[in-house]
Simulated assay, not measured.
Amino acid sequence: MLGEFRRTAVLVPLDERDSLWTADFGGVRWICAFSDAPALARFAYARGESDREWAYRSLLGARLLDAVVPALPGPGGVALDAGSHDGMLFPPVAGVVPDTVAVDLGGRR
């Protein structure tokens, strides 16, 4: 699944500052990404925010894991399709993110 995610463009909503939308949970900053527009729409509906427009960027999964996660100010990962039955987490561990930020290898966090 990781290889497929790395090769796939996903949608990442933008927050009120036009930054990628994240959520903090368990000491990790999770970038919220969605596999397609319907998945993002279901998430917006579940949050009770389906009546507003959700701006987003399309990014390759590899770019999120290799460039964006290391730029976060602490441990970070990607939550794909949060809140769905098919959701997945790509945590800040070796083999998922660069070794320099992998928490299981004592990354710079």
Rank of each mutant, 00 (worst) to 15 (best):
A9L: 06
A9V: 15
V10N: 05
L11W: 09
V12S: 09
P13I: 06
P13F: 14
P13G: 02
L14N: 06
L14Q: 04
D15Y: 07
D15L: 03
R17Q: 15
D18L: 12
D18G: 02
D18Y: 11
S19W: 07
S19Y: 07
S19I: 00
L20T: 00
W21G: 00
W21I: 00
W21E: 11
T22G: 02
T22R: 04
A23L: 12
A23M: 09
F25R: 12
G26Y: 13
G27Y: 12
G27N: 13
G27K: 09
V28Y: 08
R29Q: 14
I31Q: 02
C32I: 08
C32G: 01
A33H: 07
F34M: 13
S35L: 02
S35H: 04
S35R: 13
S35A: 14
D36V: 01
D36E: 14
D36S: 14
A37Y: 14
A37W: 07
P38Q: 03
A39L: 05
A39N: 01
A39T: 10
L40T: 05
F43K: 03
F43G: 07
A44L: 10
A44Q: 11
A44S: 12
Y45W: 01
Y45R: 13
Y45V: 01
R47I: 00
R47H: 06
G48C: 10
G48T: 06
G48D: 07
E49W: 10
E49P: 00
E49Y: 04
S50I: 00
S50N: 06
D51T: 05
R52F: 01
R52M: 02
R52C: 08
E53H: 05
A55Q: 15
A55V: 11
A55K: 15
A55E: 13
Y56P: 08
R57W: 10
R57F: 03
R57D: 09
R57H: 15
R57M: 09
S58I: 05
S58N: 05
S58D: 06
L59C: 09
L59N: 01
L60G: 13
L60I: 04
L60P: 00
A62N: 09
A62G: 02
R63K: 04
R63M: 08
L64K: 04
L65F: 11
L65M: 14
L65Q: 02
A67V: 09
V69L: 04
V69T: 11
V69H: 10
V69P: 04
P70D: 02
P70C: 00
P70W: 11
L72E: 12
L72V: 02
P73T: 07
G74C: 09
G74A: 15
P75H: 03
P75R: 15
P75G: 10
G76D: 03
V78K: 08
V78N: 05
A79M: 10
L80H: 12
D81A: 05
D81H: 08
D81I: 03
A82F: 09
A82C: 08
A82S: 02
G83F: 07
G83T: 04
D86Y: 01
D86R: 07
D86P: 01
G87D: 14
M88Q: 15
M88F: 10
M88G: 00
L89T: 04
L89F: 13
P91C: 14
P91R: 09
P91D: 12
A94P: 03
G95W: 08
V96R: 12
V97G: 10
P98V: 11
